[in-house]
């Protein structure tokens, strides 16, 4: 690897380090409510739910839109894509998770990652003039840091996977070692989903995880909760 590429590799690691302050840790994407309704579910079942979310929601909607944002030809194209993503986020919880994390990533990136200081689209997100969905912001941020397209999409999927598993750990339902085992064993799934996402046309996006969506909507009106979504 040429020495200058290390910069991009390190930037990729930084973006997907759980220490990067983009607010992902307050979102369980319906998992908290689902776990409350399934007190007997063990690690195997919980992992299957999370993997279904990846396979039928993150992989087929967000990951595809990361790729399209990365390849967008103009800021106007990004704004249109951003609105399209919002239209596909059916529940308020899904919109909240996507837009709050995207907005926080945009704000943090502008403050801390020099090549993105004056990015026009991130500026619109910061000003509240476009929703700032995480997938679109991530595409822009990865391209701005010269991180490759495939890595951008793979990183998005990997962060979504680890974030959901981490929620399971903090809710006391999966062990941290089991989580790491799953993350390692899940590599082929992430690679498969990333490969498909990069090839999917924009009119092929979809998000179909009705059970988790219902629990995410129930979570919106739950009085006792630890996560925003």
């Amino acid at each position: 690897m040429p020495p200058d590429r290390w910069d991009a590799e390190l930037a990729w690691l930084q973006l997907h380090d759980s220490a990067f302050p983009s607010g992902r840790f307050v979102h369980s994407n319906g998992l908290e409510a689902w776990l409350a309704a399934h007190p007997a579910a063990g690690a195997e079942v919980i992992a299957a739910v999370i993997e279904a979310h990846l396979r039928h929601n993150v992989g087929t909607l967000d990951a595809v839109c990361v790729a399209h944002a990365y390849r967008a030809g103009s800021t106007a194209d990004l704004v249109r894509l951003d609105r399209l993503v919002r239209a596909h986020k059916l529940s308020a919880a899904a919109r909240t998770a996507s837009e709050s994390c995207g907005r926080q990533l945009a704000l943090a990136a502008r403050r801390t990652l020099a090549p993105l200081d004056h990015d026009e689209f991130l500026g619109l997100v910061a000003a509240g003039e476009t929703p700032g969905n995480l997938a679109v912001v991530e595409g822009v941020v990865h391209r701005g840091l010269s991180i490759g397209l495939a890595r951008a999409v793979l990183g998005h999927l990997r962060s979504a996977y680890s974030g959901m598993l981490s929620a399971g750990v903090r809710l006391g339902r999966i062990g941290p070692l089991e989580t790491q085992r799953r993350l390692f064993a899940g590599a082929p799934l992430l690679v498969e989903l990333a490969g498909a996402a990069v090839e999917t046309p924009i009119d092929g996006i979809s998000a179909v995880t009705p059970e988790l969506d219902v629990y995410a909507m129930r979570h919106e009106t739950t009085a006792a909760r630890l996560f925003s979504t």
Binding site: P21, G23, F25, V26, S100, L107, L226, S228
Partner: peptide
């Protein structure tokens, strides 16, 4: 009100994003 994902310290220290929002 801000939810803190079972990590109240994280929300005021490592990642104050939800509070900043």
């Amino acid at each position: 009100a801000v939810e803190t994902g079972a990590c109240p310290h994280t929300a005021i220290r490592e990642d104050p994003s939800a509070n900043l929002a």
